[in-house]
Design a protein around this nucleic acid. Sequence first.
DNA 1: GCCCCGCGTCAAGAACCCGTCAACGACGGT
DNA 2: ACCGTCGTTGACGGGTTCTTGACGCGGGGC
Lengths: 229, 229
Amino acid sequence: MTLVLVVEDEPQISRALVINLKARDYEVVTAGSGRDALETAAREKPDAVLLDLGLPDMDGVDVVRGLRGWTAVPILILSVRDTERDKVDALDAGADDYVTKPFGIDELLARLRAALRRAGPHDAEDAVVETAHFRLDLTDRRAELGDGSAVHLTPTEWGVLEAIVSHPGRLVTQRQLLQQVWGPEYGEETNYLRVYMAQLRRKLEPDPSRPRYLHTEPGIGYRFLPDTP
Amino acid sequence: MTLVLVVEDEPQISRALVINLKARDYEVVTAGSGRDALETAAREKPDAVLLDLGLPDMDGVDVVRGLRGWTAVPILILSVRDTERDKVDALDAGADDYVTKPFGIDELLARLRAALRRAGPHDAEDAVVETAHFRLDLTDRRAELGDGSAVHLTPTEWGVLEAIVSHPGRLVTQRQLLQQVWGPEYGEETNYLRVYMAQLRRKLEPDPSRPRYLHTEPGIGYRFLPDTP
DNA sequence: GCCCCGCGTCAAGAACCCGTCAACGACGGT
DNA sequence: ACCGTCGTTGACGGGTTCTTGACGCGGGGC
């Protein structure tokens, strides 16, 4: 069964969406605010997200970024705003599609089907990265040390870490990191990376001053080196 | 480089698309009919397809089906038709997105980026250069010796090395190297090359004073000679 | 045989980049 | 309203990298 998260603050529209989705045999969970959306998504692990941009508590684009920090779930934006700038911002933040209200329900469902089809058979492969000194569960968003003690990482720390460890051995450029974590308009602020790499090393490396897993390539970027057995 | 196939029978629109895409550093191939589109896609293996539904020889939806028979390349529909039925048909046939003409070029490009992002960084073939004495992974940006020990190369060293080894056997002129690595305004500073070639040979060659792979062509440039088995 | 140009080598100073620390402000939660 | 967390920003010391100049060598032209 496919689970869809509907994020919409107007109860009327929300209810209409839920009814239509359930009629097509989708399971549905709802959220009425950005914060609620992020929590619910983390808890329920939906297969797709329908996201209204006009939320009361936070900018919809930030919700997209918050989701993209840890999941590749398809995100369809629903919005009354119809300017190119809005669409470009949302799409570049990581959204998969942008539908302008009012929309036909059939079109929306077709776009949802297209997004789900692309995402492929729900690959629930829990991405786990394990070394001799720490262990990361990307899907659960858990980090723990070798002795089993949990490590708390902030959202930005997760963003940076995930961007690096999802390509073991590969050099990830500073620009790639900045754009993936902070957004497409970033690219020069290498000081951000210095701060966050230092924090990650302090939390994860056995000897933070002598990085074993999180290597620096001066002038280029960073690289995650897994254990070589 | 990302290759985009533009399928559009009106030369004026086609040209406008090509210009905009090339300005964003996409490579572009074009097709003016459905049959042409299918052939070109099979031959060129594009990373994305922009497809006009109003083709002279066949229905656009059939082009989508023809492509989907053998490839998962992202397909963005461009169409003047704005009914829900058209959109649903195209999307359910396998298209990834549907943009109604007239559309803003920025929105189209954003949707294209979104589609390409989803398709995944075309992992494809990780470019690897291997000799009896060292091994280079251009995508990972890793260099290691025959015994598996990693070699650290500075950004400039990589620039020079990459410029040479990506054309095995071919002579690369000093000017080409300088312009590619240092910038278009360089061209005479051959002493830079002497320094960096020496460093590369010291790090990679079995006998740096007798280069086996990184040859000098006096007065002209340098050449990477792979092993001849 | 001599000269000269281009190449390889080396070393030193300059420029750049990184890690680190501390301070600030914005938010949420209590 | 207070407090703690998090993200952002600036400054500084130390290390790496780049640039630049000098020197010796060797081959080709004269």
